[in-house]
Design a protein around this nucleic acid. Structure first.
Lengths: 338, 338
DNA sequence: CCCTGGCACTCTCGGCCGGCGAGTGCCAGT
DNA sequence: ACTGGCACTCGCCGGCCGAGAGTGCCAGGG
């Protein structure tokens, strides 16, 4: 067990290192933080912290640098979340309020997060697993070809072209449209399959094939749309670290281009509250020298999706966590209003 | 006027420099290309080329490097477009054929271009200026609130929520939906305003305000959607140049995040055929050390949008142009089929 | 037992120097 | 008009050195 002062030393090391980006030595520590002990004492503490694996020295006789384990202890026990200032919060709210549609909300959120944290921002589109059907529309494109449009309560619209096994009349289609909507509107996606299962039976034999095809496509769309989309931004912020790790930046950019990777990254954080994954805690090997701060956000009491930032392990955790949390809160608010 | 051999020397310099990324000297030139003259002669030619501004030396007594003007001459007069190999073309076709919808086509195209050219790929979504309305749908969300869904012949769907000045009945709405569609379906966007202008007059006074509001929203959507969206990819390829210009990469990444900038970039190329903008020919200051190769592509005989790549001025122009042209061709083909 | 001051040691970093080699410009000769 | 020769210019690389920062350890004192 580490003494109180040693924890304090670790905290000081993390803070200084994050601020200066340079290994921090014992003397500098005692000067900048009023630890009330001599450098020699701090050195002993540092040796102990190093034994425990919380800090490391890049080269013999250089200052110390926090390890992933050190950052972990820091965020878990030593640091709080730094709330944003009132003007900042107001700016967030104003900026998000001007959004005109869902795409705009997400894109504004990404820009906001990237700017606030000066890091790479990732925002998942609101999830559809918990969302409900607002409307299903069917349009005849050709005698045996129609378009299925699905509108969700989160404001997303998806369309699919359906090739029918047989031509269908406008009246039958209107019939199907009406019955379909009366059954599924307002229902959660997961409920839909059970609700439409018996629909084909109530149609004439000639239309039954088409109805089945339409329903199959609808269910398929629901499933596909449950797989999330996301938007990223602020990659230019990565260049701030180019001088330090020119060779680390490439795998990060590559990972960021793989939506699958990012979705998994966000998805891994099971906690609906804030999650911080530090360095090697990220399984994807391109991201082992980055940290990910993510949090769920939602339009109501439930979290519908996640957002977060990706940055170097040497990030300002309290500030970043504060920004992420605040943005998530306001986005949820905006979504609930619309 | 430059002699034939001097042009040949310039071509050799460009080719060697692009290949090696290092300033090329007179001796190396005579060895690698069989110019049939001595290094001394080449030196005289190089001095002449330098006087004319086609090449420059980074430092006294280093080899020569092409200038923007040199590259310009190279692409205009000295280089052809290098066609892709048959296996490459087949791979492109196969990869694009598997696309399931428009988003997928665009996303696959981006990945393909980025991979083929090992540069940053930019693909504009098919333009709507020349496209036509396939269907307009109106859905009642609340008594005085409805959703407008616009479907285009390129397969894009856009939706807007409309707040009406007064409640509207389902029957009036159905009436509006039918009349609206009978007028605009199949028409080009630019024609729509004139076609719907007098619609409000044919409705009862109570609905007239709502009809006007709906029409206004529709026209607004048409205009907004004429402003293009685009997708980019392959930014990780930028890191290949990080060692050479660590400070150049940041403005490039920033520019790439600004859709407006990219749209202007693609839009500036008036020629529907291939356009190459080299270095300072790009007005955006972040991109003055990059070249942009772009070309229009389309589903039929008309170009509906552009695609291209952004890379360092020291790129393999013939190869890049070949890849860009081939991809554009196949995308056009795929779009025409679907 | 914990803290402190002192001290010798290690290593990085920046500057400096000198040699090497690539590449050049010029000139005289064919 | 081309070529070979030659002197010259620099950038690059490796080695060297001194400064400075930081460390570990030890002996002494509260």
């Amino acid at each position: 067990m580490l003494s109180e002062r040693r924890l304090e030393v670790l905290r000081a090391i993390v803070q200084d290192y994050v601020g200066t980006q340079e290994p921090v030595g014992s003397k500098a520590l005692t000067e900048r933080h009023n630890l009330q002990v001599s450098p020699a004492t701090v050195r002993n503490d540092m040796a102990a912290l190093e034994d425990e694996g919380y800090i490391a020295q890049p080269h013999t006789s250089a200052g110390r640098v926090p390890t992933d384990k050190g950052y972990r202890l820091f965020v878990d026990r030593l640091a709080g979340v730094k709330p944003l200032s009132k003007p900042e919060r107001r700016a967030i709210q104003n900026f998000l309020e001007d959004a005109v549609d869902l795409d705009d909300v997400v894109s504004r959120t990404v820009r906001l997060l990237a700017q606030l944290t000066r890091q790479v921002a990732v925002v998942q589109y609101p999830s559809l697993t918990r969302s409900t059907v607002r409307h299903v529309e069917l349009l005849l494109l050709a005698p045996a070809r129609l378009m299925l449009v699905l509108i969700t309560d989160t404001g997303r619209v998806e369309q699919r072209v359906v090739d029918c096994p047989a031509p269908i009349s406008e009246s039958s289609l209107a019939d199907l449209r009406a019955r379909l909507n009366s059954r599924v509107v307002g229902e959660r996606f997961s409920e839909v399959p059970g609700l439409v299962q018996d629909l084909p039976e109530s149609f004439d034999a000639e239309d039954r094939g088409t109805v089945s095809t339409v329903l199959a496509t609808l269910l398929e769309t629901l499933v596909e749309e449950t797989e999330e989309r996301l938007m990223i931004g602020g990659t230019a912020n990565l260049t701030r670290f180019v001088h330090d790790f020119p060779l680390t930046i490439r795998p990060v950019l590559e990972a960021l281009e793989e939506q699958v990777v990012l979705l998994k990254l966000l998805g891994e954080a099971k906690d609906p509250g804030m999650t911080v994954r530090i360095g090697h805690e990220n399984v994807h090997e391109g991201l082992t020298s980055t940290s990910v701060v993510s949090v769920g956000y939602g339009s109501g009491d439930e979290a519908v999706a996640k957002l977060g930032v990706v940055g170097p392990t040497r990030m300002d955790y309290p500030g970043t966590m504060g920004a992420v949390r605040a943005v998530a809160r306001y986005v949820g608010q905006i979504l609930a209003e619309s």
